[in-house]
Design a protein around this nucleic acid. Structure first.
Lengths: 162, 162
DNA sequence: GTCCCTATACTCGGATAGCAAGTGTCCGAGTATAGGCGG
DNA sequence: CCGCCTATACTCGGACACTTGCTATCCGAGTATAGGGAC
C-alpha cells in the first residue's frame, strides 16, 4: 500500500494557500517553485483539488489558486480524497463465492466478514483524517517553524504575490 | 491508494487454515483451488506469510501450510503487513526543506507537521487492524455462513485433507 | 514379522516475463489585464 | 480627461510518453513418505 506522492504535494500546497489568505492567489508555477517539485505535475494535482472543490482556480493574467473555503472547513480527508480518489483501499473480490465449495448467491451474508474487518480499519483512518483540518495543521506548523524560516518565506511571498 | 489483491487472498487463506486446526496442513495448490485463484501467485503470498511467521510450511510429500499460532494470537495487522510490508503508506519527502525559502536543517522540527498528521491516521488504521484477530473474523464468519455452505466446505475438506 | 534403505512423488522457494497504474511532460483553449485609440 | 476596444501575456485544463511496482508464471532444490528387500 502506498499513497501517491501527489498527496504530500497537495497538502503542502494547501498549507501555503492557507497562509496566503483568501485575498491572494498563487499560480501552480509558483507553488511548484516554492516546494521544489515539477510544475507540470503539481498542476495536475491542483486540478484534482479544484475539481473536488477544495481550491478555486482563477484564470487569466493574474490568476492562480486559492482555497475555496476557510482552512478550518477543509478536512485533510478532503485533500487526500481529491488526489487519491474515494475508492476503498481494500477491494473485496468476493473470492468466498468462488471455488468448489461455492453455494448459491443468496446463501452469503451481504458483505464478507473479512472485507468488513478491513473496512472497519479504513473507517478509522478516514475518521482521523476527517477530524483534522487544514487549520489544525497550519496552526501546528506555525508554532513549530523557526522565525528565520518565517521571515524567508514572507520575503518570498512579498516578491511573488501581486 | 490501493491494497494488493494478495491481502485478500492471504486473509481468506488464513481463515481456512484456522478452521482446519493445528493438526492438518493444506498445500498452496489446494488453498488456491478452494478460492479459485492462480496457485503460483497465491504461493508467493503464502511464502511471505511464512517468512513473517504467521504460517508454518511443511515440506515433503504430505506437506503444506498451517497457522504458526492459535488464531486468537494472529492479528489482522500481522497478515496485512506480511503481504504489504510494514512501510508507511504516506512517505514524507521533506519537500518543506526544498525551494527558495529553505533554511538550514537544524531549523526544522524533527518531523514535518503534515507527515505527523498523516501518520496519526495511519496509526488509527493499524490500531484497528491490531485489535482484530483471526479468531474474531473466523468467529463472525462461522456465525454468518449458511449450514449448506458449511456442509459443502466440510465435505471438500474431508476429501482433500489426508 | 521387523527394520532399514532407496526411489519417488510431492512440497516449498526464489528467479523470471507481462501489464497496469502512477509519474512526468507537453501543448492548446480561455481569460483578465494593460495599453492604445477615439470621443 | 474618460471610456471602449483590441492585442497580449498569462493562466488553467486535458491529451500524450515513460518508469516503477504489482500481477502472473515457471522451474529447480529439498524432504517426508511409501514400498520393497534383507535379516
Amino acid at each position: 500500500m502506498r499513497l501517491s506522492e501527489g498527496v504530500e504535494w497537495a497538502l503542502h500546497s494547501c498549507a501555503v494557500l492557507a497562509l496566503l489568505g483568501p485575498d491572494h492567489t498563487l499560480p501552480a508555477t509558483r507553488l511548484a517553485e516554492f516546494h521544489g517539485v515539477p510544475a507540470a505535475y503539481l498542476a495536475k494535482h491542483l486540478q484534482q483539488l479544484s475539481r473536488a472543490g477544495v481550491v478555486e482556480s482563477m484564470a487569466g493574467r493574474r490568476g492562480g489558486y486559492r482555497l475555496a473555503r476557510p482552512p478550518a472547513e477543509i478536512r485533510l480527508l478532503d485533500v487526500v480524497e481529491a488526489v487519491e480518489g474515494s475508492e476503498r483501499a481494500f477491494r473485496c473480490a468476493e473470492i468466498r463465492r468462488r471455488g468448489p465449495s461455492a453455494v448459491s448467491d443468496d446463501q452469503y451474508s451481504p458483505v464478507c466478514g473479512i472485507a468488513r474487518a478491513m473496512w472497519r480499519a479504513e473507517a478509522a483512518w478516514r475518521a482521523e483524517l476527517a477530524r483534522q483540518t487544514l487549520a489544525d495543521v497550519v496552526g501546528v506548523m506555525g508554532r513549530e517553524v523557526s522565525p528565520e524560516a518565517v521571515a524567508k518565506a514572507a520575503a518570498w511571498f512579498q516578491e511573488v504575490v501581486r
